[in-house]
């Protein structure tokens, strides 16, 4: 399979499972913003977990130069093959010359395109992830997004998916993108430096997603959270960490976050809820609720158990 990009939309980035094990050298974790949609996509085209795909904001259009297997996932995802609507969250077979477009019905949300096979891409420290800020990864290995005219080679393998039995994820199992349900927060880091009043403000208020959101972090706006600790030494920042700068407006740190930072942190958004936050768009509101780390881990293990049940790995 080979594809040729007609238009990358607002932004189309090559991402994979992330650049693991190099944060101590300053390389960010990278990886998909919406891990839930990403995980299912690789299953639907029978690629190994952690394989590359395209993360899209806006409308991506491309042409297939050969036949192959594709799938689309993400929030309010809309997949068209030759201007005909095709089912997302399901294996799709495409032919040579097929025109594909991928977009989301909620402006600014991410959608993902998967293609079965081995993607021929340069890697840096074991990952093809594009990190614009670090100027590495992607097709050119300069951290650039995909451009019109770019071509990507994907070496097909004998697909384990029988031709008449597409892999399919029932709609009830699609990722939940509801912003009404509060995001779970594991309290940690400097949480002891926040007063009971500050925590009550944070956990009982609604915070708006501002337009200042990107793969590094999501700036929220809402009632000010005060922290008694004003200055601290820079330290490692984990996925979902909730930073409170002195203006009191939370910033939730995402995949391309810097590895170290010096703003006090209240804790981390539950890894299972990071995907939901990643798909929220400016103007939507979110709220937070504390969860004990043991409960959060139990929820994580159950979630994975459910993934394996759906894929038939366990019964």
């Amino acid at each position: 399979m080979r594809i040729k990009i007609h238009s990358p939309g607002m932004q189309s980035l090559l991402v994979d499972g992330g650049r693991r094990g190099h944060q101590h050298e300053g390389f960010c974790e990278a990886g998909p913003m919406d891990e839930e949609a990403y995980w299912w996509g690789n299953y639907l085209v029978a690629n190994q977990a952690g394989s590359p795909c395209i993360e899209v904001i806006g409308e991506l259009s491309l042409r297939c130069d050969k036949a192959g297997v594709i799938a689309a996932t993400g929030r309010d995802v809309k997949l068209n093959v030759n201007h005909q609507n095709a089912q997302a969250y399901q294996t799709q077979w495409v032919k040579e010359g097929d025109e594909i477009t991928l977009s989301s019905n909620s402006l600014g949300s991410k959608t993902y395109l998967f293609i079965g096979g081995n993607w021929q891409l340069p890697t840096v420290l074991g990952s093809a992830c594009t990190v614009v800020r670090e100027q590495l990864g992607g097709l050119t290995n300069l951290g650039e997004g995909l451009k019109a005219g770019d071509e990507i080679n994907i070496v097909s393998f004998d697909s384990p998916i029988p031709p008449n039995k597409p892999r399919h994820l029932a709609q009830r199992h699609w990722p939940n993108y509801d912003c009404q349900t509060p995001l779970n927060v594991i309290e940690g880091y400097q949480s002891d430096c926040f007063s009971a009043v500050a925590k009550r403000t944070f956990f009982s208020s609604e915070y708006q997603i501002t337009s200042n959101i990107n793969r590094m972090g999501y700036r929220l706006s809402g009632p000010k959270v005060q922290c008694e600790q004003k200055s601290m030494l820079s330290e490692a920042i984990h996925i979902g960490a909730i930073q409170i700068p002195s203006d009191g407006q939370p910033i939730v740190m995402m995949r391309d976050r810097q590895t170290l930072g010096g703003y006090p942190k209240l804790g981390c958004v539950d890894p299972l809820d990071v995907s939901r936050l990643a798909q929220a768009v400016p103007g939507e509101s979110v709220s937070f609720t504390p969860i004990h780390s043991d409960n959060a881990r139990a929820r994580f293990l159950l979630h994975w158990q459910q993934r394996r049940r759906i894929t038939g790995e366990v019964t």
Partner: peptide, 20 residues
Amino acid sequence: RECVPAYDSLMVVFDAHAVD
């Protein structure tokens, strides 16, 4: 998974499938 030192701190990241 990761071991990220800074001035006086060290973040240890582990595989939550395997250990708590």
